[in-house]
């Protein structure tokens, strides 16, 4: 009897801590997505050149990979998350302007945005409802992601539209796997830092949105 009480007493704080990480992650994620939308709108308004995307993505990645982990446990980490997501949103501006100028562009952007939201919410709900442990996906997803990056390097020089479409489709599937993996890590206590959890989920949403935009742009005959 005492052992049962002890088990409950040990599990309760752990579940509370997990819920807190999850709640903080979703709160910070929603704020950073709104902030990204704002910086993207500013970038569109300023009519930034296409190279802005490349500079912002490289800058954002360097900050996220090398600077953020050092400050993840301090309040400065939240500021860096906003800096990274703001930069990535700002980089999206020229791409969104290009799509918006196409005849069906508004529809493509709206569908990509809505589609990204449905995919993220659907997969998150799936993990939260089933509480399945997707830690077994880690190696598979990382290797898949590296292979896609190699294919992307090759396609920069080959410039094959069908390959570009294939890469975008595979990126969406791999990023979907990362949503399952990251959310599962949060609910099973594998990720206890909501700043790092937020940036991981933000990156997957960002990549799904860009890939969906590209697929819908090409398939809509507007690219």
């Amino acid at each position: 009897m005492n052992r049962n009480f002890s088990t409950v007493a040990q599990r309760a704080p752990s579940a509370l801590a997990t819920n807190k990480v999850l709640r903080n992650t979703y709160m910070l994620l929603s704020m950073t997505l709104l902030f990204s939308g704002l910086t993207a709108a500013i970038s569109m308004y300023m009519n930034m050149p296409p190279m802005t995307y490349l500079i912002c993505v490289i800058g954002g990645m360097v900050l996220a990979m090398f600077v953020l982990p050092r400050f993840a446990n301090s309040p400065a980490g939240i500021g860096i998350v906003f800096l990274v997501t703001g930069m990535l949103g700002f980089g999206l501006g020229p791409m969104l302007s290009m799509y918006a100028s196409l005849p069906n562009g508004g529809n493509v952007i709206t569908l990509a945005l809505g589609g990204t939201g449905v995919i993220f919410l659907g997969l998150s709900a799936y993990v939260l409802a089933t509480r399945k442990d997707f830690s077994f996906l880690g190696g598979f997803l990382m290797v898949g992601f590296l292979l896609v990056l190699m294919a992307a390097v090759a396609n920069i020089f080959l410039a094959i539209p069908a390959m570009s479409l294939m890469i975008s489709a595979v990126v969406i599937l791999i990023m979907s796997g990362f949503i399952l993996y990251d959310t599962s890590r949060i609910i099973h206590g594998g990720e206890t830092n909501y700043v790092l959890a937020t940036i991981g989920l933000y990156m997957t949403i960002f990549n799904i949105f860009i890939s969906l935009l590209q697929i819908l742009g090409i398939m809509g005959g507007d690219d």
């Binding site: 069906n104 529809n107 493509v108 569908l111 589609g115 449905v118 995919i119 659907g122 997969l123 799936y126 997707f134 996906l137 489709a169 969406i172 599937l173 979907s176 796997g177 399952l180 969906l212 697929i215 819908l216 398939m219 809509g220």
Partner: peptide, 19 residues
């Protein structure tokens, strides 16, 4: 893992139909 992946593929095909 395969079930949600198949659902996403179908969903993307649905989105393509809408464009």
């Amino acid at each position: 893992f395969a079930i949600p992946v198949v659902m996403i593929v179908l969903f993307i095909m649905f989105l393509i139909q809408l464009v």
